[in-house]
Simulated scan of single mutants.
Amino acid sequence: MAGRLNGILGFIAHYKYLIVVVIGVLIVGLIDENSFLKRVQLELRISDLKREINRYTEQYEADSRQLDELKRHPKAIERIARERYFMKADDEDIYVLSDDEQPIETNNETTE
C-alpha cells in the first residue's frame, strides 16, 4: 500500500506542471462560464440571429414597398383583393384552375 502511494505521489510530483495545465485547460475549455464551448455556441446563436434579422429586414422592406403602392394607387387594393382573397366584382365570375389530377374511382366489382 505504501509503495503504491509513493508511486502515485512520485508521478504527481514529476508531472505536476502538466497536470495543472491539463486541469486548467479543462476548466477554461469546458466547465467555466466563459468556456470555449459556450463561446462557440454563442457565436452560432449570433449568426442565426443575424440571418433572422436580415430575413425580417427584407420582409419589412417588401411590406413597406407594398404599403407605399397601396397608398399611391387605389386600384392596387382591388388587385391584391382579387389575387389573394379571390374577391370579385358583381359582374364577373372567378374560375380557379388546378393542375392537380383527382383519381377517378372505378368500381370493379361484378355482381352475379
Rank of each mutant, 00 (worst) to 15 (best):
E92Y: 04
P74Y: 00
R51I: 01
E101Y: 10
D63I: 09
D68V: 02
D48N: 15
D68I: 01
K88V: 01
R79H: 12
L70I: 05
I53C: 04
D48Q: 15
R72A: 09
E61P: 01
M87E: 12
E78W: 05
L49F: 03
K50R: 13
Y95K: 14
A81H: 13
D90H: 08
V96Q: 15
L97Q: 14
E83M: 12
K88F: 02
F86W: 13
S64H: 09
A81R: 15
R55I: 03
L67N: 08
Q66D: 13
L97D: 05
A89I: 10
I53G: 03
I77E: 05
D48L: 07
S98H: 06
K71W: 09
Y85Q: 06
D68A: 06
D48I: 11
I53V: 15
R72Y: 04
Y95F: 07
L97I: 07
R72G: 07
E58A: 10
S64D: 11
E92H: 04
Q59G: 02
V96D: 12
D93N: 06
R82F: 06
R72V: 02
Q102N: 11
R82V: 08
V96K: 11
A76C: 04
D91P: 00
E61K: 08
D91Q: 12
A62E: 15
T57M: 15
E101A: 14
R82A: 11
P74D: 13
R84E: 14
E92C: 11
P74M: 02
